[in-house]
Design a protein around this nucleic acid. Structure first.
Lengths: 302, 302
DNA sequence: GCTGAGATGTAGTGTAGCTACATCATCGAC
DNA sequence: GTCGATGATGTAGCTACACTACATCTCAGC
């Protein structure tokens, strides 16, 4: 999507423009810094500036603006504007638009949606395709699947448990820790345990994952960072979101987790024999008929 | 963010650029249509075109490209490019990039994340701030809250049930239909029932909502469209996502629902007395201590 | 205080985006 | 069927914006 920048090596192309500016800020020359500050102060306004306008606003000359663009890894001013526009389309991450108590509900909704979208974008950019591939392969080959997680991660487990039985593989996602532990202990060589924990440090989840490994099963982890859980997993999936810095900031990690589960489920569905998917389609339409709504209902989407 | 267009009245400023082009397509002049088709065929490439380049690709003259920009409600070519970039940053909606069985897992992940982000963007654009405000007010004033939903909507209910007890109001989200019905029947004048159903036609959910109303409670609905459920609700919240046209397309509606719940929870939290939020903060840090992780765990985020 | 390297600004150029006008097609009326 | 009028499309030219080469200035080190 975004054009990769072969220039400046310090920053990662998978970072968002505003992040990159913030990162590079200390290493910028004095007058370039002035430009950066103007941009960070009001990115939306900066997007509509012309080069001369930005130069004037920052009280520097036009070539300085050019050099600034080059420093943060853009091809030129045009490219800078486009990249900025793209970044802004995803919404300003919380660091740039904190929630405050005087916000109207409409504002609040705007900000939370923005934050969520930015987070998902980050997850998308940092997700390792190879690991996803491996996870799909492992799940396809499984005899039974156990999903474990607590709190918000438990919600993800439950969601997964709604989807995966569609593939004819027995699934469970018990909420109770003891039951989880028992199920993990019973793992066979083709059993897969999907252990979910945002921090990757949750003691109980770790215990269950260890039990599953000890019993000879395969462990897929879904965490927000590299952590004890991802270290012990056979297939570690890492979904990076933006840290929740504020009390008011809701947990976006669980949403990213849910989307990842969607990806896994869809990946598995695609690689299944076609006739089986036909059966799923039939089941779905029958389920829809059980309601008097005009179209398929919200349960059991693949 | 985007400048509102006083010109052409047909299209809504809250629509995404590609949607607008598709909408306007029939009413475009013949040679402008050629431009539109080139853009729709490969929007990513179009973004990097210069005006002359696009003109050549569509085999028309440069002014025609200009007129095309004006027709779809852009200030000029520059503006067109920026808006296109913004649209693409959100990812191509499924209509433009369908999932096919030959996709690699990395591709698949990309597409599903894109689709989800586009959907959330749509939800954000179509959400009614006034209704959210009313929902927050109603929830703030409630004596107890009941969340109901089945299938994927049940997941949303459960998620909500994890958040709202933080505000000191008794909450429940029973999975069992009969229990839901009983709870709804017991509604008092300050009881709030949040009924969740993407289609808004789910029979059981409707039954529970009606029972709650009959008992004198207030009903807040979360649906994907105006429907019987939203009609009977006191506060109807509508979260529009992109329809799930394909078997392989996962349900994004539940994600939008979850974000909406975040918005409601945050809205309520912000309007609560400050000392109460202090108590929540303390509870969260204690919960974090129960794990040996470095930071707060994934449950109980406000 | 001098020297040189790096930072910043000045002046100039090419081109991309835009506009005014001319030409051509299309359709209706006589 | 021809003429005229309206609207669509292309041509030519202009403005200004992004970009570049060069000069000047600042400041560190000697």
């Amino acid at each position: 999507m975004t054009v990769t920048q072969p220039t400046a090596a310090t920053h990662d192309a998978s970072d968002t423009l505003l992040e990159r500016i913030t990162q590079e800020l200390p290493s910028l020359r004095r007058s370039e810094k002035k430009v950066a500050e103007i941009v960070l102060a009001d990115p939306v306004a900066a997007m509509n500036y012309t080069m001369a306008g930005l130069a004037e606003a920052a009280d520097v000359s036009e070539p300085t603006v050019m050099r600034f663009c080059a420093s943060i890894g853009c091809e030129g001013f045009q490219d800078f504007k486009i990249q900025l526009a793209q970044t802004l389309a995803l919404g300003l991450p919380v660091t740039h638009s904190a929630i405050n108590p005087t916000d109207s509900s409409a504002n609040l909704a705007e900000k939370i949606f923005d934050h969520t979208i930015s987070s998902l974008d980050r997850a998308r950019r940092t997700l390792d395709g190879e690991e996803v591939e491996r996870a799909v392969a492992v799940l396809l080959d499984s005899s039974d699947i156990l999903f474990v997680g607590f709190g918000a991660s438990g919600i993800i487990a439950q969601d997964a448990q709604q989807k995966f039985p569609l593939f004819g593989v027995p699934c469970q996602a018990p909420a109770d820790f003891h039951q989880q532990f028992i199920a993990a202990t019973m793992s066979g060589p083709k059993s897969v345990t999907v252990a979910i924990s945002n921090t990757g440090h949750t003691e109980q989840t770790l215990t269950v994952a260890r039990a599953a490994k000890r019993a000879g099963g395969t462990v897929v982890s879904i965490t927000g960072q590299t952590s004890p859980l991802s270290e012990l997993a056979d297939v570690p999936l890492v979904v990076r979101t933006f840290e929740d810095t504020d009390v008011y900031t809701p947990a976006t990690s669980r949403l990213a987790g849910l989307v990842l589960v969607d990806v896994l489920a869809t990946g598995v569905a695609l690689r299944r024999p076609q006739e089986h998917n036909e059966a799923v389609r039939r089941m779905k339409s029958e389920l829809a008929a059980m309601r008097h709504g005009p179209d398929a209902e919200e349960s059991a989407e693949s």
